[in-house]
Design a protein around this nucleic acid. Structure first.
Lengths: 220, 220
DNA sequence: AGCCGCTTGTGAACGCAGGAACAAAGTCGC
DNA sequence: GCGACTTTGTTCCTGCGTTCACAAGCGGCT
């Protein structure tokens, strides 16, 4: 039982690996067999040297003078990220955003499958969205236990997000993706990642405003 | 003509300022008059010292021994971020995600207003969503010019995202928020930010898998 | 008025990520 | 079979972000 890659991989690298994986999948679907770091880096929007450093965390996986074998590298990254087989996820809060996510094709094709949709509003329970039926909150724990879902997505209003987080964690969910505009606290051993859409817009607004002062960094 | 804050503010700080702004707004609505860095940092989920350093970029705005005046600080951050008044935005691609975003209350209440929704599919044109009517792509340039929209949001399929980006940039949009799973290239002077939902899930999957090896960092 | 406690703002050290340059290695052409 | 070219993997270095720790300043109490 060897551990060829026991060391930790930086989180920034993990995020980029996911991008490389997408590009590699597209290349493989296009019939491409090998690719060099320069081309891959351009497609992913990163520096070639940084890309090679990222891949070096997986061990040597390229051929000098040639490049990387597309399918081999794709499979290797899939295995490292843990998306080689589909993972069951539950989604709580079937509003507009929740409906969009549950129906988002980008998830199913990338190793994530929603096995339970939940909402507290009786009017929404029973609706069919993306091949699944919305369930009442009462069934949350039961479904998590039955499906061994390890990932939960929260798209509820901010007021109830913390209580949903608590229930998910208690039910055994170990990873939570939070779209509600609050900072959640979870017990140790549970990872929480936050996606805040309005923050992204506000950063853009700031950059746009700042450009009015120092228009563009134009080199001589 | 002095320049009290001419220097650039780190982008990571700007993102956190947006979070502080949300917390401060909630505190102000709750009638709170002052708040200390410790409490504010806890609500935002960051280190108190880092929060004070972030705020120091705005100049002295607290009172030693007391804390920060909630409303004053809120207004100051709003001004720095450039969201003191509403900004016009256009949204291209009215699929599930686009519909959700156009209807998302979190945008309107935080200084962003969609002034144009666009889609290429004739079936979607004419639909009313969130108080606006979906327009055909032909009218994109016209609406951007008429409304002086400076921010564009792309929620189209990946295949057409680059062409939409080109048209937005040509029409005068200076900031673009991209939800399509591709890396866009834009002319200089145009900022592009990318939000990749499946990357977030894949990072979570990796962290969850990694926990199986080194279960939890339990200090003695 | 003077002291004390609390909180801010800042300076310094640490760790990490990103970029450039270089050596190793493998392939293609002759 | 050998040389030259291409590309990877690594190392060094620079800069940024984060954290810790302390001095300065203000309000409240006596």
């Amino acid at each position: 039982m060897i551990q060829p890659r026991p060391r930790t991989i930086p989180e920034a690298t993990v995020a980029r690996l996911a991008v490389y994986l997408r590009v590699l999948t597209a290349l493989a679907d296009g019939g491409r067999s090998t690719v060099a770091s320069g081309e891959l880096a351009a497609a992913a929007g990163v520096n070639p040297a940084g890309l090679r450093k990222d891949l070096s965390h997986l061990g040597p996986c390229g051929v000098r003078g040639v490049g990387y074998e597309v399918r081999t590298l794709r499979d290797r990254i899939s295995r490292v990220l843990g998306v080689e087989r589909s993972r069951p996820c539950v989604l709580v809060g079937i509003g507009n955003l929740g409906s969009a996510l549950s129906d988002y094709a980008g998830f199913g094709s990338r190793g994530f499958e929603f096995v339970g949709l939940f909402d507290a509003a009786p009017a929404r329970v029973g609706q069919r969205i993306g091949g699944h039926t919305v369930r009442p909150m009462d069934e949350l724990e039961e479904v998590v236990a039955a499906t061994q879902a390890s990932i939960g997505v929260i798209t509820t209003p901010a007021e109830v997000a913390q209580s949903v987080c608590d229930r998910l964690a208690a039910a055994g969910v170990r990873s939570i993706l939070n779209f509600a505009p609050v900072t959640l606290s979870a017990p140790p051993g549970v990872d929480v990642r936050k996606v805040d859409l309005s923050v992204e817009l506000q950063v853009l607004a700031f950059l746009g405003q700042q450009r009015l002062v120092s228009p563009v960094e134009e080199p001589a």
